[in-house]
Write a protein that binds this DNA or RNA. Structure first.
Lengths: 217, 217
DNA sequence: TAGATTGTTAATCGATTAACAATC
DNA sequence: TAGATTGTTAATCGATTAACAATC
């Protein structure tokens, strides 16, 4: 059995998501069972590491000499990552990015259900994207309270981020996925995940620098 | 002086970006100098950790009893993270997400210059977003070669991701920022940064779960 | 000088890797 | 049975934290 209530490190989380993606590919290629060794080798990762990561997430044990049933393994990891239990969310700020996220059908696969968008722009209010209504920001607080929503996606301009955050927190939101470049302040009992493009870009740039450096040697 | 050619861990990178954001806030609040201790306390992080992170990135040393000049510190960290040296990139797949990224002026602050977009859709080709032209995908390879571009942003549908990746690699691209949900295969000398919404969402969901659990106790 | 903070060195902690007995 | 893989325990490595001398 697994680390029943695992506060797993971020690194493990990242790798588990990577495993799921690769396992889906392997399943498509016709694999019925898969060993931790095979998965590790496919990803060029240490075998013990993959073994241990898997053991954090699984309910269905593997069999010596055979490995894991690929369906059960995918199911277990997805369940551990929370892809299976649907979570309702609101999205605030229906600009280009907000529209892109509202229109992205992939979220459903990961258990996120955006119930609707909110914007101050009159011209966009009352339109629909991907079958989801867009309401005026004035109705944000009451809607969140009424539907008991706990997750909000923040895609407003940076200047409005803090003001909207305050409204969200007041309405009972407990997790904010922040796509704005602004730093937002929240009480300790509200989780914030910054989708930080700057960091990703910096990481990518550094990798590129190392590759180009290696080449010129 | 700094760890002159620092292969710094991802964790350090993430924290340095966090420091910059907070330092900008502090500067706006009127700080002229700042100590590692003050910064650490403001972020509720360990003092030694912040001290060490900073020492990886800085050129301008701090002064005992005073701390660092806030302008120099921001400048040094930004430079270390590569925000200052402009990097040209192409963007492939000008859907909602692609448009959002092309229209996002914040990238300039981080040194990314999207020189243009590419799409197969005739109706969007030849339009402009944020002053940047959109060209047919057929011209992608020659444009990348001609302008010697090394970075590509991939925002196509998942199904096209691998085919486009192959073209990009052939044209000389060495770093791909992958916003598609697809797993793309590249040679070892091409860096890939997956912008994995699923992982972020999973992390946020877990934090939320822990908060709600704590509450019900 | 006394006090605070720097930069650096040592101690601790956690995550990764290796080793191995159990099992099909 | 022999061989491969599981699950687990021990060893290693790296990152975080604590301690401390140097300095303004």
């Amino acid at each position: 059995m697994a680390n029943s209530e695992g506060s797993v490190s971020l690194a493990v989380f990242n790798r588990l998501a990577l495993y799921v993606r690769r396992l889906r590919d392997m399943k498509a290629e016709g694999f019925v069972t898969v060993s931790s060794v095979a998965l590790a080798d496919a990803l060029s990762l240490n075998r013990s590491l993959v073994k241990k990561d898997i053991s954090c997430a699984i309910v269905n044990e593997g069999k010596p000499k055979v490995g894991y049933n690929i369906d059960e393994l995918i199911e277990d990891i997805e369940s551990f990552l929370g892809y299976n239990n649907t979570k309702d969310a609101v999205l605030v700020g229906v600009g280009k990015l907000g529209q892109a996220l509202m229109g992205y059908r992939g979220f459903e696969k990961y258990g996120l259900n955006i119930i609707g968008g909110f914007d101050i722009d009159e011209t966009i209010v009352s339109k629909e994207i991907n079958g989801k209504k867009i309401l005026p920001t004035g109705k944000l607080e009451s809607a969140v309270k009424k539907l008991n929503i706990k997750i909000a996606i923040l895609t407003t301009p940076g200047e409005q981020a803090q003001a909207i955050t305050d409204i969200l927190v007041k309405a009972g939101i407990r997790a904010i996925w922040n796509f704005t470049p602004a730093h937002i302040k929240t009480p300790d009992d509200v989780a914030v995940k910054n989708e930080d493009m700057a960091v990703s870009l910096a990481v990518l740039s550094q990798q590129l620098k190392e590759i180009l450096k290696k080449e010129s040697e």
